[in-house]
Write a protein that binds this DNA or RNA. Structure first.
Lengths: 158, 158
DNA sequence: GTAACTGTACTCGGATATTCCATGTCCGAGTAGGGTTGG
DNA sequence: CCAACCCTACTCGGACATGGAATATCCGAGTACAGTTAC
């Protein structure tokens, strides 16, 4: 899985705390010391997916498009990784010299079904967790984090 | 995910029906019209994982190392894809200029925990399904498949 | 006739090219704010 | 003094290089069988 997913999730948590301020991608990159242009690319994917909105120009930047409790981890993963399923069945059972009439392959490939079942369980778990819960979990471990983040983004100018 | 997983799973099902015969990788490749050398590479991974055994020479080939109901889909996936987790946390929360003392990061990263939780659900589903169940599922849809496969591997000589 | 030997044909196993996607970077499109100029 | 305009500086957005892993292939190591030869 692309590491852009990790960056996107952490960025969403930061944006959640800084809401409703618009934050420049450059500053988000500085916070974690990430390549600014590449992080920008990932944020663009979030924009296309409607998770965050962007405004150009000075005072511009990114902000969450909706409340953090309405953004699931699955939303972010799909936005960056794409909608392609991890296991894609190429129907090799219908290739080769021992192939039957297409009627015999009406039933979907059993292996594909099994793999898809596991993948759905994965997606279900991701869809059950929201960005808001990530924020709450972090705050539970170190309660002063939101305030510390806000202060850094307000004051530090480098 | 690598397509070698699909090849490996289908090969295991075939080997399950042809057990206890040893089948040459060349013949397995012919059955699905796959690149013989590359399929061989995937089968080697299954050998290293102890899922199938291999014997060289004429009359040699591959065969299942244990009963099909003792081989889970997770076994095959891990054997080919490797043990690396899909989401790997690079601890970017500890990078950057706003970093605290290492004590504050005793608690594991909340995002990594959430992603790992989803991945464990995926693995659990895969571990709950065996090659034997794949064989049973196929046979339920088209009962003559095992016999047809055995006949092809016995007679066809191309 | 039999047994040992040797050669051959067939298999797996790991080292070696090639293609494609994730990674990383760059420049153009767009906008807010301030400075300037004319009334 | 005020308002309209323009210019600059800063942002996002998509097009353009680069590297490493998945894909694909080839040749060497190992083995069973058959044919041959010596006894």
């Amino acid at each position: 899985m692309s590491e852009g997913v990790e960056w996107g999730l952490h960025s969403c948590v930061l944006l959640g705390w800084l809401s409703p301020e618009a934050v420049a991608g450059r500053r988000l990159a500085e916070y974690h010391e990430l390549p600014p242009a590449y992080l920008n690319k990932q944020l663009q994917a979030l924009v296309r997916a409607g998770i965050v909105t962007s405004v150009s120009g000075p005072k511009g930047g990114f902000q969450l498009a909706r409340r953090p409790d309405r953004i699931t981890l699955l939303d972010v993963v799909v936005a960056i990784e794409g909608t392609e399923k991890a296991f894609r069945c190429t129907e090799i059972r219908q290739q080769g010299r021992n192939v039957l009439s297409p009627e015999h392959y009406r039933q979907p490939c059993s292996i594909a079904v099994a793999m898809r079942k596991a993948e759905l369980a994965w997606r279900r778990e991701l869809a059950a967790q929201t960005v808001a819960e990530m924020m709450a979990s972090v705050q539970r471990h170190s309660p002063d984090t939101p305030e510390r983040v806000r202060r850094w983004f307000d004051t530090e100018r480098s």
